[in-house]
Structures are given as structure tokens and as C-alpha cells.
Design a protein around this nucleic acid. Structure first.
Length: 105
DNA sequence: TAATTGACTTCGC
DNA sequence: GGCGAAGCCAATT
């Protein structure tokens, strides 16, 4: 992370806390990071995602849509599928069930 | 410092 | 279901 800003670090921190088999939306991550309306900036930070310890692939768009992944959505789908998250037609199946919640740990 | 850029979201057609 | 426009935020140029 070339720019150790508070926000970016918080975002990465949140994403890192997402357990396997669960996913979070950009909005959720932004909210947990303290900026509920910064989902766009979150995406910006994720794009940089040069950290193996940060499961950026577990961050999906609202409504259970896959979103993007450095141009390879297919890879993201594979990674999610490998963790037990079924993706159909660019959408997460049982999105409400796999969506990560801080309290659900 | 100002302008531009997105892995976004939501609403309308 | 797909396409477009407006709104919001941080990072980058």
C-alpha cells in the first residue's frame, strides 16, 4: 500500500476480516470502514489490491452482482466457487445467506 | 491545487 | 434484461 492513508487501511482491514465462504458488498465495506458513501473509493482501493492477505475477491457489488476483478470476473467467480459461494449468471446465489455480517462473525 | 478516474449505487426509460 | 444519467468519495495524474 503505497499510500498508508487511514481510509485505505481501514478498508483493507475490513476486507481482510471477511471469512471464507462469505462475501461483502462495496457498500458494506465502506460502511464498516467508516464512510458509508465511499463505496466508489473502496472499489478504487480494491483495484490496487496487491495484497494476498486481502481477499478482494470476496468483495462483490450490491444486489449480489459479481462486480469486477481486474478485468477477469471469471477468476473471481472461480475463487468464490472454491470457497463455497455459488455464482450464477454473474450473480451470487443465496446472496443474503453468504453475505458477511460483522455480528455473524 | 485542480481535474480526472473508477472493481459503485440507484433510479428511470 | 439492458442502457443511460446523476450522485458521492478517495486515489491518482
Amino acid at each position: 500500500v503505497g499510500t498508508p492513508d487511514s481510509f485505505s487501511r481501514r478498508v483493507l482491514s475490513v476486507v481482510r476480516r471477511i471469512p471464507p465462504g462469505r462475501v461483502a458488498t462495496y457498500g458494506d465495506v465502506a460502511r464498516l470502514a467508516g464512510r458509508p458513501r465511499a463505496f466508489r473509493a473502496v472499489g478504487n482501493i480494491m483495484r490496487d489490491c496487491s495484497r494476498p492477505e486481502v481477499p478482494c475477491h470476496r468483495v462483490v457489488a450490491a444486489g449480489g452482482r459479481i462486480g469486477g476483478y481486474g478485468g477477469s470476473e471469471g477468476l473471481k467467480r472461480s475463487l468464490l466457487a472454491a470457497e463455497g459461494v455459488s455464482v450464477v449468471a454473474r450473480r451470487v446465489r443465496g446472496f443474503d445467506l453468504v453475505r458477511w455480517r460483522p455480528e455473524s462473525k
